[in-house]
Nucleic acid binder design. Structure first.
Lengths: 231, 231
DNA sequence: TAGTGGTCTAGACCACTCA
DNA sequence: GAGTGGTCTAGACCACTAT
């Protein structure tokens, strides 16, 4: 077999895995042996196997060798959504209204989850996002102004949406995300001008930068919204 | 700077990006220049930069150089869910009931989406999954028996759930996933023993293996279900 | 302690793409 | 056409860990 490209070798290995040549959990040959088999340098096989490990198809351990992962993990690419872009991609026009901007201290649950100290200066902002005059999402956000201070002042009400400002100003942060479905309560339904008890797609996202809490946000999306992932 | 590890170099580059040394979209020095700067081989810098590109922090182009990505893409690891495990992780006991197993041809919409031919032998299965006697999810699944033939016969009604059998038998496939929220209609609500119009979290997933359609499934989750992602 | 993967090097050639 | 990243090699040494 005269394949010298790590890409081809990766593909060949995937085929051999798919064909059942190696059972789930089984040990596959070592790098040196595979390099001989494929007629290339060990480095090249290493590169192919490393890729497979990053893709979650195999597990590699020094001395332990390389094994087929029993329960493969798929990785999905997820872009941090900028609401304006989500709307405009659909060919609709975007605008937003900031409903509230308050300095009230956050609920206890949030304070605890985010490890906030009493000194942290927390702001609450509620924003309504529109797509072609229909409500697209209601955003409830808490921001840690203490941690955001180095990035300059927050945009004023009528400027850029906070959603977009944050993504562009504080990039490369870490965080987590939770998707769920809830039913709109009376007050929310009225705000979003949708029927009471309509199903809402909810995204809760919390963002950290360098161990300090930046922001947490709850996005309530009107019916019809979805999240698509290539796996 | 005497850092010779691609890992350290990556970290250094991330810091320099976060510090604002290079603006979003800006061109950063080439591999050779960085290699001189860090006092290591170009290969090592290449490895660090390649990692950053895979992480979605930079964009690399031959001749065009390496640029800071304006809109960073975060990658989230997503495990293909096995419903039994999702339930058991929460400390609840799992069981399922297969409601239907029909040979009726699939709806036109599905046939077209999946590029099925007339020859393909398609099976429809409807399963109800329980967590501690409460309904956890309703699963509606179409399977392509033609493509599944090489993997042996499908489990019988009372055995392993099809969900689990598929994940373990046909691993390393490609596919896509869509999350959305809908309201339970009267019939569904009755089946799932939940209130009419309750908000359901829906996962639509389609799986392909080697260009042939394997299965498509719609999972309707009872209220309280969520999907969590580390970003 | 021995074996396996992890990494680094120095050099070479290739492939894409911008001007 | 020239410049940048993409890749391969052959060899070396290191780090972890199973036995």
């Amino acid at each position: 077999m005269a394949t010298h490209s790590h890409h081809d070798i990766r593909q060949s290995l995937v085929s051999r895995i798919q064909s059942g040549e190696w059972a789930l959990g089984a040990l596959i040959p070592g790098e040196i042996q595979l390099a001989e088999e494929y007629g290339c340098a060990r480095t090249t096989v290493n590169r192919a196997l490393r890729t497979l490990a990053e893709e979650g198809l195999v597990i590699r351990k020094r001395k332990g060798g390389t094994r087929i992962k029993p329960n493969p993990v798929r990785t999905a690419k997820l872009t941090i959504p900028i609401i304006r872009e989500q709307v405009e991609v659909k060919g609709q026009s975007y605008r937003f209204i900031e409903l509230k901007r308050l300095d009230t201290p956050p609920p206890k649950a949030i304070t605890e989850t985010l490890h906030l100290t009493c000194d942290d200066d927390v702001l609450y902002v509620e924003t309504l996002h529109f797509a072609d005059e229909a409500v697209f999402a209601l955003e409830k956000r808490w921001l840690n102004r203490t941690a955001l201070a180095p990035f300059g002042s927050l945009p004023r009400q009528s400027d850029l949406s906070l959603n977009e400002w944050l993504v562009k100003t504080v990039p490369f942060s870490n965080g987590d995300m939770r998707f769920s479905a809830i039913s709109a309560d009376a007050k929310t339904a009225e705000l979003m001008t949708i029927p009471k008890r309509a199903p809402l797609f909810v995204i809760d996202r919390t963002t950290w930068s360098d161990d300090s809490f930046i922001t947490t946000t709850k996005l309530l999306h009107t019916p019809g919204f979805d999240v698509y992932l290539q796996v």
